[in-house]
Each structure stands twice: as C-alpha cells, then as structure tokens.
Design a protein around this nucleic acid. Structure first.
Lengths: 244, 244
DNA sequence: CCGACTTTGTGCATCGCTTCACAAAGGGAT
DNA sequence: ATCCCTTTGTGAAGCGATGCACAAAGTCGG
C-alpha cells in the first residue's frame, strides 16, 4: 500500500491525493467567507499550486466544474470530502502521551472534520488515569481491546523511538492498517499497512542543507551561528526525555 | 528556492536530500552498535529504501564506498553530516508556545545534533516569562532583536493559523530564509525563502483516503464511489447542475 | 439566436526520480 | 600473480508528475 499509484486506485495519483486536503482547506475558508463559486486560478493561488495542476487534480474526481464559470464551492467541498473519506467519522487512537501526544490530543483541528480521538494510551503508570482533552489515559495493556471495541482504524504513534516498533507490531496485529508515526524510526510493517511519518528532525536537516547552500553561495562571511551564547541560551539543560 | 532541483545545487536532487537524514540516522545507530562498515544493501534495509537508490543517492556526494566491501560507517556519517550542514550549529527560534511549541521545545532530538533552540517566543502575556526546557519565553515584540542578535537562521512556526502569515512576514523581514511551518496555512513568502510544512491533518486525511479504499475493496457493502453520481448528494446544497 | 468572452478539461512534451542490470573495481585465497 | 567473489557506481529504460497550450463548453449581453 506504499506504492505510489495503485492499479485500482481508480486512477487517482498519489500526488493528487496529497494535495486534495490542501484544496479542501482553501475551499472551507472560502465557504466561510461566503464565496459561492471559484475559478481554478483563484483556488490554485489560495492553495499555493499551479492552476493547471489543480484542474488536472480535480479532473481525476470527475467533471465538477462549469466552463466559463468555475467550481461551486460547496459542491466541491462535498466531492473532495467524499473522495477523502471524510464523510464518515474515523476513530483515532493516540499511543504515547508525552509532550507531543498531549499536544496532539489537544489539537483542535483533529476532531473538527472526520476524525475523533477515541483513545489515549500510554505505558507509564504515572500518566495513566490522567485526563487530557477530556479523555482518560488508559494503559497500553488494553490496546487491542480498545482498538477492537471502539472501531479504531487509524493509530497515531507518539511513543519514544525505542518503543515504536513494538507498539506498531501490536497495533498491526490488532488489525489496524493506517498508522501515523511521529517516532524517529523506520517502522517495518506488512505491505498492506499504510504508514506515514512525520519527522521533525528530518525537516530541520533538509532546511539546514538549503540554508548552508544559501550561506555558502552569495557572500559567505563568518559562519555566525555559534558566535555568542547570548544571555540565557547558554544554560539549556538536558531536556527531560528522548521522547518526542 | 522551492524549485525541485537547482541549477547549481552541485547536482544533488531534492529527493536525495530528503533521504540523507534517514541514512544518517541509520548510520548513527550502527556506529553506536560498533559496526565499522556497511554494505549498500544493509544500509538500505535499515533506512527502508531500495539499495540501488541508496547507492545513487550516495554517489551524488562523491565516491565514498569501497567496491567489494561497502561503506565505512564513521566516514560516511561525517560526509553526510557535512553535506547537510550539520557540522555547524544552527540557532533555531520557536514562535508560538502552545501545546505543540512546548512539545517541540522539549524535544530532545532537537538539540542533539546540529540544532540549538535559541529562543521561545509568544504573544500571550500569560505564557511570556515561563521557563520551558530551561528557556525563558519572551514576547514576540523582541522577535527581530532576538533573530538578529542570536544569529537565528531557522524559525519554527507553531502559532495558531490566524497569526502565522503575519509572524512569517516579520520573520522574513528580519532576514530568516528557512522556516518550518506547523500552522495549517499556505504561507506566502519570497522565492528566496525555504518553507517546509508539517501538517497533521493533511497526513490524517491521506491515511483516511487509503483506509477508505481498503475498506471499500475487499467486501464493503455499498461502495458507491464508482458508478453513478449518487443522488444522496442532495443533503448538501444542490450541485450547480446535474445529469448529463 | 448569435458572437464575444471566460474558464474548464486534457493531449502532449518534458522533466526528474526510480529501478534494473552490468561493467568496473577492490579483497582474499591459493 | 591469478582467479573468484563481493559490492560499488552508473548507463539506460521506465514511470509518474508537471506545466503548456488549446479546443471544447459554457455564460452573458445584445
């Protein structure tokens, strides 16, 4: 399920799927502002893409535009939502209630459309029993039961790196086939399971690469950056845990 | 700087750059376990990629392998680190100290290699003055001063969506050209500025899409999706037009 | 009803990334 | 030194994504 484009994906390219949420967000904003119809050009600008690309993307869903006019905002919202599977409610479980897990649990946009946090799980007895964002934190022991009984189909992994693969295995055994992984490890899963990863340090490193290029190009002076410890930054004590 | 591949990038493709951190992480793990040399095959497995791809990626940095033997782990770590610009220290400022900002500030892997949190900034007087991960939270008013004086070259945006563009503009004016954006908005910046975005809800929506496909495939009852435009769309406002 | 104008949907050329497959290069044994 | 084995580095084919450019299709004013 990792492969770029599926045989029977009804021909919706992966690259298009990745952009649909972007269009959807832009459309929601427009709907709220009372915009009734929008041209591919305007929507493309709002989503930060090329208008030809946008039209081609939308054409994969069907012909939902009107030539000479544009797209009906509400209708398009519905069509994209349906295509993305947001017309139903997805039960999500968050495993690992460290700093990040807490942040995710409190993340409003989570619940907003299509997703519902159905469980918070952690191995640490210290946090089990806490209430976060109105949810009780349960012990990881009940993982399988929770997944089964509450119909969890998407699991968010926010555990320390060391625990991620083990939890992942259990989650997969329990029948979950969609995982969003925040732990900095390469998870190994069967082909039938979809894993998407969000990795802060990778993003920073990519930025650093380009930044270095920029600095080295024009007129690289002194590599500043390290110069002054400046005020209180010097006493950055070791952070609590390796937990993300 | 958004363009996929730069003319004078010394020819390192963007796709390759995005994988180098992955290789680096795998190599660090191996170095810690005392592995001296590694073959492209083994490293590829550890990083979750195809071995031919890995070799081609590494070949963009130079010929650092030994035929018949493999790659020297430590040497390769150094070469990749240098290429990514991790041999210097990058000062990072985190703007927006909500749940996510806090989690990021406490993220250990942050400081570990090449990156140093140099400032935490927020607009809310309630949190300004707090100490998080050993750092004092300062008011957003001093943004420009902090960026200038502490040599901040990478800014992490963890503000609410509504504030993101404004903060972004200020950050860019202050001379920052690398931004990691967690706010769910499309930032508009000059071409010379690199923006990478991390967007939880987009990732979830992509997972939902594939999950829906999986559910609809094997033996889903209804399915719809394919054949006809389906009439139940009526519950949303009427489509601009219908039929054929 | 017509003609000018707008905007969609898409064929096509192009581009960059992936993957295969293999020659070239090194190590080690005899 | 020679042969065999391993593994790298890369030419070339294949594949999907991008963006241009335009015909088709629709709107609107007269």
């Amino acid at each position: 399920m990792k492969s770029p484009s599926h045989s029977r994906d009804r021909g919706i390219p992966e690259a298009t799927v990745a952009r649909l949420p972007l269009y959807l967000r832009a459309l929601h904003g427009m709907a709220e502002r009372g915009v009734a119809t929008v041209s591919s050009e305007d929507l493309a600008v709002a989503a930060g893409v090329n208008s030809a690309k946008l039209r081609k993307d939308l054409s994969h869903l069907g012909s939902y535009g009107t030539r000479g006019v544009g797209y009906d905002v509400e209708y398009l919202v519905y069509q994209i939502s349906r295509e993305l599977g947001l017309t139903q409610d997805w039960a999500v479980a968050i495993v690992g209630v460290g700093n990040l897990g807490r942040a995710l649990a409190n993340y409003g946009g989570f619940v907003s459309r299509g997703f519902r946090v159905a469980a918070l799980l952690d191995a640490d007895p210290e946090v089990v029993g806490d209430t976060i964002a109105g949810l009780n934190v349960e012990h990881i022991d009940v993982l399988e039961a929770v997944i089964g009984r509450r119909g969890v189909s998407i699991v968010v992994l926010a555990t320390p790196a060391a625990a991620a693969q083990e939890v992942c295995d259990r989650v997969v055994s329990a029948g979950v086939t969609s995982i969003l992984n925040f732990a900095p490890v390469v998870l190994s899963v069967p082909d039938s399971v979809d894993v998407r990863k969000v990795d802060l340090s990778i993003e920073l490193q990519i930025l650093a690469f380009h930044e270095q290029r920029k600095a080295g190009g024009p007129l690289m002076a002194v590599d500043s950056a390290v110069s002054e410890p400046s005020e209180q930054t010097g006493l950055l004590t070791g952070p609590p845990k390796e937990d993300l």
